[in-house]
């Protein structure tokens, strides 16, 4: 498969070219268009229980869609629901990424996806919920974000602090602790940051330039209240 990001920026779309017989999995509802040679199937990744746990636990979609070039080569257009950038990663079989639940857009069929329970503190305060996706295997992985995607490279033992609602994906070789943004409880909340994640390298952290929860709170004030 070959992928290309069209219209990079706020409203991108990704074009994936598939050779005959090749297939990819994508978040359900992500397909925008496809060649007539492509078949769309829905598939419960990891079996029924796996899909159920992913749906219940991470809030991810119950079904992934499988796009298969069953009648010859073709292309697929995919786009996320929210405005924001798309990033394409190549997994080499040893690299694994933890991805927050809305971050997955599509991946090669050889990419494995499982939901994973976080530690209690991370789940409670980390901003991504108690369950996240662990994505490994080999092949192309396509992630999307809310806003622009920014990549932070961390050398061994190098640290970086990220607001907890801005995380998209991070290497499994990094680790992070949740801590208050300021030393005092009051200052932590009045500064508007609350909790932050202190990442420690080595590895890569992808963050998004907008906070979905913050955006939701902002837009709520403009929604007329019906009687």
């Amino acid at each position: 498969m070959r992928s290309e990001i069209l219209y990079p920026g706020a409203f991108p779309m990704v074009r994936v070219e598939l050779a005959a017989g090749e297939q990819i999995k994508a978040e359900s509802g992500a397909m925008v268009g496809a060649s007539p040679t492509i078949d769309v199937e829905s598939k419960m990744e990891g079996g029924f229980l796996g899909a159920l746990s992913r749906k219940l636990l991470t809030g991810e979609k119950f079904f992934f869609q499988t796009l298969r070039a069953s009648r010859g080569p073709g292309e697929v257009l995919l786009a996320p629901t929210v405005p924001g950038e798309i990033v394409v990663l190549e997994l080499d079989g040893v690299n694994e990424y933890m991805v927050q639940k809305d971050g997955f857009l599509a991946g090669a069929d050889t990419v494995s996806i499982e939901s994973k329970m976080q530690s209690f503190t991370r789940g409670l305060m980390g901003g991504e919920g108690f369950f996240i996706l662990k994505i490994g295997g080999k092949g192309t992985l396509i992630l999307n974000s809310f806003g622009a995607i920014h990549r932070i490279d961390l050398k061994p033992d190098q640290e970086y602090i990220v607001d907890n609602s801005h995380m998209v994906a991070w290497s499994a070789t990094t680790s992070y602790n949740i801590e208050r943004a300021s030393s005092g409880w009051v200052a932590s909340f009045t500064s508007g940051e609350g909790f932050v994640c202190r990442f420690r390298g080595p590895g890569v952290v992808y963050i998004q330039s907008r906070n979905p929860g913050g955006f939701g709170a902002w837009i709520r004030q403009f929604i007329p209240v019906s009687e």
């Binding site: 080499d92 040893v94 690299n95 961390l154 050398k155 070789t173 390298g201």
Partner: peptide
């Protein structure tokens, strides 16, 4: 020859070099 570990170092990529 498929990689079985990730190596990190000053001149290596931040995501780790498969080795």
């Amino acid at each position: 020859s498929s990689p079985n570990a990730l190596c990190f170092g000053y001149e290596l990529p931040a995501s780790g070099a498969p080795c």
